[in-house]
Design a protein around this nucleic acid. Sequence first.
DNA 1: ATACTTGCAAATGATTTGCCAGTGT
DNA 2: ACACTGGCAAATCATTTGCAAGTAT
Lengths: 151, 151
Amino acid sequence: MTVPHETPVLAPASIPAAITTLRVRGLRVSAARRLVLEALFAADGPVTADAIADGLGGRLPESDLASVYRNLDTLEEIGLVRHFHVAHGAGRYALASRHHAGYVVCEHCGAHRPLERGTVAQIAAVLREACGYDPQLVHFPMVGRCPECRF
Amino acid sequence: MTVPHETPVLAPASIPAAITTLRVRGLRVSAARRLVLEALFAADGPVTADAIADGLGGRLPESDLASVYRNLDTLEEIGLVRHFHVAHGAGRYALASRHHAGYVVCEHCGAHRPLERGTVAQIAAVLREACGYDPQLVHFPMVGRCPECRF
DNA sequence: ATACTTGCAAATGATTTGCCAGTGT
DNA sequence: ACACTGGCAAATCATTTGCAAGTAT
């Protein structure tokens, strides 16, 4: 269901670089922490904390779900990770370097795909003019029907 | 935090009318059911199930939260009620006759306000052209910053 | 009379938190 | 050594579900 992403752009684009960032912030490089990073680098799109804890379905060793959440939070605090919420489902986490300007999620099949910066800007303009709100399509993507699920 | 709404438009606009709709569908008119309707008619905007169960803060007698959820579901099934989701918070329920084409919610203060049909249409057009998705701003409103919370 | 409903408790799913043992630096 | 982390169980929050007792029709 996960649509492939464009190529990375900013920030630490390798595990060693990310680990350096951790050290610079005075954070420790534990096995659990490293695993979360490995999972995020290995994933081919935003993933759930649960998927990371399960070792991406066997590709990596398992880890404790609570620790995964804690580490994702920590990594997000130092700018290495970003996450967004998916309709009724669990949140999706990705490396900040692979994150996009916004997302859309299909309320029916759960597929999520990134939005181009220009699209987000257009929508923001419409909304801002209509009621002064500034949309945050990164943290809370728009929900809709993908072309395949539009009966 | 709740922004006032425009005036009603469609469907049963009175409690007796709503009760008739219930009877027509072969559903029973119980005290608990009636209370949910009264709360929705008395509320001045979309409210949480919890608020209804609490009797809108004393204005009405309390009722069982599980029953409130069940009745809201029932009422929604027969078209009397609609609900939408609010960022991290609890869902909001309103009479279908008072519902709008879409909503925006402030991720900071929780304020939610209705969107005009035209605004929703414009956003839908942008998104549809960008990636073929058809947004559902009614069930899952856009999340953003309201003018007051934009630091 | 009998299906539909209720109230209450317990289960869900996602995420968080308390705590103490374990470990990076 | 010692503060930072990890694992695991228990707690939250919103919502749902199981079930026996109650009631609208």
